[in-house]
Simulated scan of single mutants.
Amino acid sequence: MGKAARKKGPKQDRVKKVREVFVGQPFEGLAGEPELIALREFVPSATVELPLKDTGGRKVVLGTVLPMAAAAFVRADGQAFVGLQVQTRSTDVSRDIGRSVRWALEAKEGDVLSVPDTITPGSEGERLQDLLDPKAELDVRMHTDFSWWLPEGTEAEGEVALSLERANGAIMPSERLGTGAYWVDAGEKAHLRWVRPEPEGKVLQALARLSAAGEIGLGDDSRYAGSFRAHGLLVPVWDLDPEAHAREWADPAKQLGERLDQALASLDDEPLNAAERRARDGLIGRQITIR
């Protein structure tokens, strides 16, 4: 018995679906890539004025966290802010932030963008790479609280006051020790988290070389803890003595950076030896990934 013929009904409208491709290294090509990753992932309170190609007469400040985790807002005095640590994201973080920057350039005083635009299909000219001077370094300003949310001499009210109180209460003391390198006092331990701009494989090999030579630490009362991946880059982490102030780790961190740079430079001429390869395998086993 043959198959029954299916009766064809009227054509139905179909919604064209756009397949979004996940961008694993959203800030690639920007000189400030390590700082953008650090401020998005683990720095509690910091700001940086964006080196925009065209401001239209308005400066835009990038901040770690804004009131109620907003994507952007314009203060009563006209200063525009864009937030990095938000609750929603698309497959391209650079595009999300770029759209918030464009909104901030055109918004009015008192306007708030609660969440970034993660729905509209992508188009050209929206990413941070399109809006910023790619060679400009970022001048990061660290803060001990979130009073920068408000114009000077202004007191918070309502939901902003509650959000300010919660945000201030969650801050862990932090200091910037160098490009992409941040000290944080987490209580029982202090840490150095260092976003490295080099390819992950190269960083691991250089760290392995230092580890095999007994030079991976920052001196006494420090220990290499492992690393995590964030937005396409590797972030090595060291445990530090919490009794020591951040300034006491500045020179050791600088010296470690010099050793790491030397190890990176040596990789082209000197492949890892057996001991260094074993050290690398051990380091690989202590990695996690943060998107």
Rank of each mutant, 00 (worst) to 15 (best):
R6L: 06
P10S: 08
P10Q: 09
K11C: 06
Q12M: 04
V15D: 13
R19F: 11
F22S: 08
F22I: 13
G24Q: 05
Q25D: 15
P26S: 11
A31L: 10
E33D: 11
E33I: 04
E35S: 09
E41T: 14
F42W: 10
P44R: 00
S45H: 03
T47L: 06
K53R: 15
D54Q: 14
T55S: 12
K59W: 04
V61T: 15
L62E: 00
A69P: 00
A70S: 15
F81K: 01
F81L: 14
V82W: 02
S90N: 09
T91Y: 13
V93E: 09
S94E: 03
G98L: 06
R102W: 03
A107N: 06
A107H: 12
L113M: 14
L113P: 00
V115A: 15
V115R: 14
V115I: 12
T118F: 07
T118K: 06
T118D: 07
P121Y: 03
E126L: 13
P134E: 07
A136S: 12
M142V: 05
W149T: 01
L150T: 04
L150I: 07
T154G: 03
G158T: 10
V160W: 07
E165Y: 04
N168S: 11
L177D: 00
L177Q: 00
T179K: 06
G180W: 00
G180K: 01
A181F: 01
W183V: 00
W183Q: 01
V184N: 02
V184R: 07
D185N: 13
A190N: 11
R193Q: 11
W194P: 02
R196K: 15
P197S: 14
E198K: 04
E200T: 11
E200D: 12
E200W: 04
V203K: 03
V203I: 13
L204F: 11
A208R: 08
A208Q: 10
A213F: 03
D220H: 13
D221W: 05
R223S: 15
R223M: 14
Y224D: 07
A225I: 02
H231R: 13
L234D: 05
V237A: 05
V237G: 03
V237L: 10
A244M: 13
H245C: 12
W249H: 02
A250P: 00
D251E: 14
A253C: 13
Q255K: 14
Q255N: 10
L260T: 00
A263F: 03
A263R: 03
L264P: 09
A265L: 14
A265Y: 08
D268W: 02
E270M: 07
N273F: 04
N273Q: 11
N273P: 05
N273T: 10
A274I: 12
A275R: 15
E276S: 12
A279H: 01
A279Y: 01
D281I: 08
R291M: 04
R291A: 09
